[in-house]
Design a protein around this nucleic acid. Structure first.
Lengths: 130, 130
DNA sequence: CCTTGACCTTCCTGTAAGGGGAAGCTTTAT
DNA sequence: ATAAAGCTTCCCCTTACAGGAAGGTCAAGG
């Protein structure tokens, strides 16, 4: 099948597929006589794997690791688990950071009248007049 | 004062200061006879404003808006509040997204033995063999 | 006076992960 | 036959700077 169909079935855009190929994340697709890429169902399967992993917050290079482990029949599940735990830690750290930022902003918004008057605790705070 | 001192006092790196100047976020600093930038305490104050706003998750272009509002003595606080609320909404959306991702990953990690054996629910899930 | 070394300047490249679009094929449909 | 769609490669754009090269400048020490 051509790239747009593979894109549709895998949930990875054509652009992204070409990109993944260019950085050697996936093995280059076969080419038909006309030079068009020709994808198999297995290719689509791999692309879905990539898509799902990316959606779970794994970086492209981590996806490369996951793919290698996936294709290594003798891998130890501990390695995969380690990657996933690292991803969780990063995500949770990010959540904590965002929550504290949101808390500060919410406090500022609560203290701001939000009307036609110029007085604004938000700007005052940003200006450091605490 | 020179750029490195302004950087130290404001918490904005020298690189970032030059960058902010290049994109017209801040007004170009005065230059001394030798061509060096020469920062005043007011400049440092502005930089701190920028630094704090960036730290609160405002994009550079939003900071530009905030700075304009800050310098507009007649602004309506509602505008500032709107910007802040938009930021909060974005941040909370991001938090929700990250939380659901973390939940999926945590579930997968919990189901993975994480030992020498190759069986791995994480890879199985990524492969879509649900 | 001269030489370091620490600053400063501008300019170029690189980052993550593709998106957008141009120029030029091929294939498909009318 | 021709137009529309799809494919190819290639290059620029995005965010918000960091890193580093090449070269000018300033203050301290021998």
């Amino acid at each position: 099948m051509n790239i747009s169909q593979a894109a549709e079935r895998s949930g990875v855009s054509s652009k992204a597929i070409r990109y993944y190929e260019s950085i050697n994340l996936i093995t280059p697709a076969r080419r038909s006589g006309n030079g068009y890429r020709d994808f198999s169902d297995d290719d689509v399967h791999m692309l879905r794997f990539v898509s799902r992993a990316r959606g779970l917050g794994f970086s492209v290079s981590e996806v490369a690791d996951l793919l290698a482990l996936y294709q290594d029949r003798g891998r130890a599940s501990a390695q995969v688990r380690g990657l996933a735990q690292g991803a969780i830690a990063r995500i949770e750290g990010k959540i904590t950071e965002l929550q504290s930022i949101a808390a500060v902003l919410s406090d500022l918004v609560a203290r701001c009248h939000g009307d036609d008057r110029p007085e604004c605790p938000i700007l005052d705070d940003l200006a450091g007049s605490r």
